[in-house]
């Protein structure tokens, strides 16, 4: 296995609900190699999204260590290191599809001609060249998710974290989005951590993990 681009050791997280402390993650160990695709499955409430939030640095673990490409997690590095795809797409409704893709580049500096060309190329690769100037409200669910995938790839990240990206899509559209996501990650040698309920989608990744009782197996 090559050098891991993400390394998590003994990550733990708990929440307090009323007078009860709920242990969601208890010592999760995970390593993802460059270009590797990993799926994480688990029951609802098993802590899949919590794990993804910890891996993305959006939330802090109670214990354990996390490293991105061998370095400690820093919020400033997130925009370049990570791309994220969510179940609810989260496109910015006031700007068109192309501008949504370009938004990821804006986060790390004013986009120039190179970035604009890459955004156009990505929009074309997700099959939306003709709809680049359409607002999110004018796109279908599948199209929106494809825009979100293009946005996640915009800054050429090392890792994409996808949190149930097909959860709001019908089966056929969901399959197409997963194929697209896996294909793009393979072509660009980008690692992928895919959280999903769908066993057939999970099976398409190189490594399949189950999150049970707060641990990965």
């Amino acid at each position: 296995m090559s050098e891991p681009i993400l390394s998590a050791r003994r990550l733990s997280k708990s929440y307090v609900s009323g007078d009860r402390r709920i242990e969601v993650l208890c010592g999760v160990d995970l390593e993802i190699a460059a270009g590797e695709s990993v799926s994480i499955r688990g029951e609802s409430g098993s802590g899949k999204s919590t794990l993804l939030n910890l891996l993305s640095g959006l939330d802090s673990p109670d214990g354990g260590e996390l490293a991105w490409a061998g370095a400690s997690v820093h919020v400033d590095a997130r925009a370049k290191f990570l791309g994220m795809v969510f179940q609810s797409f989260y496109l910015i409704p006031e700007i068109d599809a192309l501008a949504n893709v370009l938004m990821a580049a804006r986060m790390i500096g004013a986009p120039g001609a190179v970035e604009r060309a890459r955004a156009k190329e990505l929009i074309a690769r997700v099959g939306l060249a003709e709809r680049a100037t359409h607002l999110p409200a004018q796109l279908s669910g599948g199209e929106r998710q494809r825009v979100a995938v293009a946005r996640a790839l915009m800054n050429s990240p090392k890792l994409i974290l996808a949190d149930e990206p097909t959860g709001n899509l019908d089966e056929r559209t969901g399959d197409a989005v997963i194929e697209l996501l896996l294909g793009l990650c393979r072509d660009t040698a980008t690692a992928l951590a895919l959280v999903t309920h769908n066993a057939s989608h999970a099976a398409k990744t190189r490594r399949q993990l189950m999150l049970t009782a707060g641990s990965l197996a």
Binding site: S56, L58, V75, A79, M84, F86, S88, Y90, M107, I108
Partner: peptide, 13 residues
């Protein structure tokens, strides 16, 4: 609110 969350996820301070 969710868009603001997204901006944070994209790296906004």
């Amino acid at each position: 609110t969710r868009e603001i969350g997204l901006l944070g996820a994209l790296g906004a301070k």
